[in-house]
Design a binder for these strands. Sequence first.
DNA 1: TTGTAGGCGTTATCAT
DNA 2: ATGATAACGCCTACAA
Lengths: 334, 334
Amino acid sequence: MATIYEVSKLAGVSLATVSRVMNKTANVSQKTKLKVEKAMLDLGYKPNSVAISLASKRSDCVGILVTQLDGMFFGSMMNGIESELTKQRKHLVITAGHNVEHDERAGIDFLKSRNCDALIIHAEVLSDEYLIELSQGDTPIYILNRHIPEIAERCIHLDNQYGSYLATKHVIKAGHTEVLHISGPRYRKDAQERIIGFKQAMYEAGLPVNESHIFEGDYGHSGGAAAIDYFMQQRLSFTSIVCANDHLAVGAMARLRDFDKIPGEQIAIMGFDDMPFADCTYPKLTTIRYPIREMGKLAADYVLKDVYKVQQKIPPSSFEPTLVIRDSVLNLSK
Amino acid sequence: MATIYEVSKLAGVSLATVSRVMNKTANVSQKTKLKVEKAMLDLGYKPNSVAISLASKRSDCVGILVTQLDGMFFGSMMNGIESELTKQRKHLVITAGHNVEHDERAGIDFLKSRNCDALIIHAEVLSDEYLIELSQGDTPIYILNRHIPEIAERCIHLDNQYGSYLATKHVIKAGHTEVLHISGPRYRKDAQERIIGFKQAMYEAGLPVNESHIFEGDYGHSGGAAAIDYFMQQRLSFTSIVCANDHLAVGAMARLRDFDKIPGEQIAIMGFDDMPFADCTYPKLTTIRYPIREMGKLAADYVLKDVYKVQQKIPPSSFEPTLVIRDSVLNLSK
DNA sequence: TTGTAGGCGTTATCAT
DNA sequence: ATGATAACGCCTACAA
């Protein structure tokens, strides 16, 4: 790999001049500029971004912390971020936290040690205190899918509780009184919030909520299936299930059929997130739209504006969960 | 951020010694070692990996090029890679190529300029020649989902054509004679191969293949829906569709229902990839298993073994597409 | 407009 | 066992 030094030698100029034509940081005469550019081409010169980063203390990289690299949710989130950043030739470095405090911490440490210019964080288990402290460091951070009052201006989130409330209310409005909940892992904030929203709507309607009516799944298909197994084994009587995400809903629908219960007809199923496949299931999934891709984009736009000073048209953003009615929640009164 | 120099000052040793205790690269007396460790703790010292990378010419990072960050396929692939690498405290830097030559090139350039120790590449549009040349550079590369004879030892792939052949044959065996194909974008190698496999099985069975029986989709749900719209508009008579991936299949199944054609009963649907949701659709999707996660893991294992000299038990790997029979292809003869 | 030289935070090679 | 002191490849005042 050719270095800037070799380019300067070949072009017969100092290496400072080479640096200048690369960065357009000062005026360079047309003649020398051409000489330098030719030399770069001849040598196939590619700047070493590690050296640039060390010398300039910026990296043109923004670090992302997600829980895992697979799954539609994080896929959409990363895609949203990437699509915005790429436009401005910024790169992303991604680490996975795996729902484990150590990994989340290590991930953030790594991103910071790589001189990331900013961090976009989806942390599951890190404490609010830690994040607050982190926000006071020299690397700007933006927090996705979480609300921390002390640093609200850094948080892009959506009211999970209200979303779940909406979902449950829709089911109740459709005439259901025996409604169960399949939640996500309880140590996850969003899962907790969705449980609360569920309970809130139930209480409001004067419907009983028993802890045994809530199954703790894993946010994956298998969690939905396990929930059905559990509910059936408990011989619970129910006509509807509010699921904490679409994956759980899909898993539940499939397992329900194994028990000859037809989702959408005998059992109403409510999803959450409105993942891309939600309108391709059968029955099509009624769910709560969670615009994670747009939220990712917004986070990226903030970074672009705050850190890279690229003028961004940032829309007046307030993300609200909204009900998307499709076919999986039948109206009992009809 | 504290530097190694400050640590050395606080500990009263030279910075070389500090480097030694960090890297256990030479013997250090117990006493000074403790002094240094205390100093590091007191200062909350975190090594700057950019500086390490510049000085040592390694980064403990492996670069990944994928087409996009969302979608189950790439999710599984990244997850497989990450799960192996994380075990050995190696990180990954991910770039997206977007099916565009410029982006793929730029992605690779970026990864190399970041001093990545190795590259795992899923390139769509880069030429074989380019990749062959790249493989001769100083950064080891591993190529996923593609076969280039000249550098076969760097390629981890699977026989797409044979997989598609298997799929089509299964449908034919089930008694179908009017079978259509929904393909992926034709500029993609795997899509081309799957088309060939489809045609091969059809020819072998003496069944007619008309180019109008093949619809070029986008590998997403919408492509599947668009295909059905097209087929219906053409007033084609058909009882089965071989889809180039599961997303297309799911999209097609949903759209089929809009036309009151019941997938799995009136129309046989064959998928490809066996994505995690394939056993949660209704009807459950008969498909070809494409073990992309395992292939990602293998690529990571190669890197670990070849580049990082970490002993890996690498199984005698040859990935074969296999038929996964579920419920979406009905047997006409029964 | 162009060149010189110090610095970014480590590693690594010599000495001692 | 420990300490100087060059690299590493680039940026950036400061000079010229």
